[in-house]
């Protein structure tokens, strides 16, 4: 049973992530009164890309060649550390800081890969990505830290077990930290109002412009990693702050309940994202720090209210 759970745990993020992207795209199409592509379109895109040849810039070095594997690998590792459907699968890897910095390792290589080809777009994309991720990191750590203090552990896989939902004292810090985490999520996954994932305009790109140079398998991995990242943050958002339905044992029924409740909650997040992306405009780049400052203040207050 445990092995099976582990397999589900490891496979969950990479397998479900493209579906999430499909969901968002499809919802956005609906809001635009289109039918849009099918939910499975992201899988098809990836599959197609895996079967294409690659053209790599002659200026690129091994960083460019290895970055996709690291970016993808990092999301798989972190994906396996999350409280996806149960709080009983924990490894020392699930430490809050280990997760944050492992993700940062992926960003580090992605940004380097963006600069590697020498393209002007890639470089400016890297610069912007690193600017945002540098400022957002403090909020990222401290919002999860709020929950960590409430539950008495920084192991995010088991954090929810120590959290008794519904307790009145917990509610305010949790809500504040969650609000902050939502801003972190948008920033870290390059969504509105930080970045437009659908843009074709190089000058406004942040995340996408680092990928302009990739093709074939490597592009597939990068896009997949981005999808994984979105799912990872969504799972963190729902299962750390509102661990309703998450299994605290390894019984079949509670696991199934856990999986379905997670899927449901994540779906809600995605729906909100889709609505958000269809209704608001992208912010000016230099307005973004204000937003991150809001997140930061929320977090500080949240931690201060704990204990």
């Amino acid at each position: 049973m445990s092995y099976l759970l582990w397999i589900i745990q490891i496979m969950f993020v990479p397998l479900v992530a493209p579906l999430g992207v499909g969901l968002i795209n499809s919802l956005k199409a609906r809001i635009q009164k289109r039918r849009g592509a099918s939910l499975l379109q992201p899988y098809r895109n990836l599959w197609k890309l895996f079967y294409k040849d690659e053209v790599i810039s002659r200026d690129a070095s091994f960083i460019f060649r290895f970055a996709p594997f690291i970016a993808m690998g990092v999301t798989i590792i972190v994906g396996a550390c999350l409280p996806i459907f149960t709080s009983t699968l924990s490894t020392p890897m699930s430490d809050l800081l280990a997760v944050v910095y492992t993700l940062a390792l992926g960003t580090f290589f992605m940004a380097l890969a963006g600069m590697d080809s020498g393209s002007a777009f890639g470089g400016s994309g890297s610069s912007r990505e690193m600017t945002i991720s540098a400022i957002v990191e403090a909020s990222f750590i401290s919002s999860i830290l709020t929950v960590a203090f409430l539950s008495g552990t920084t192991n995010i896989a088991v954090m929810s077990a120590g959290l008794s939902p519904g307790s009145g004292n917990f509610l305010i810090p949790i809500v504040l930290a969650f609000a902050a985490f939502c801003i972190v999520l948008l920033a870290e996954t390059s969504r509105y109002p930080f970045d437009n994932p659908d843009t074709h305009l190089e000058l406004t790109m942040i995340h996408e412009s680092m990928l302009l140079e990739f093709s074939g398998k490597r592009l597939a991995l990068m896009e997949w990693a981005a999808a994984n990242r979105l799912l990872i943050f969504s799972i963190l958002a729902v299962n750390l702050f509102f661990p309703i339905g998450i299994a605290h044992d390894q019984a079949v029924l509670s696991v199934l309940l856990g999986i379905s409740s997670t899927l449901l909650k994540v779906a809600i997040v995605y729906i909100v994202l889709a609505v958000l992306e269809s209704t608001i405009a992208k912010y000016r780049f230099f307005r973004l720090p204000d937003l991150l400052l809001v997140a930061f203040v929320l977090n500080v207050v949240a931690i201060g209210l704990v204990l």
């Binding site: 079967y51 393209s119 398998k217 991995l221």
Partner: peptide, 30 residues
Amino acid sequence: LLIAVPLVVWTITRFGINRSQRVTTGRTWD
């Protein structure tokens, strides 16, 4: 994990899928 997982990803993508893929080098697209 940080060494093994990217290696596994590399092995799978390199040898598990589309082994006949050809990688060429060219100009940077700008």
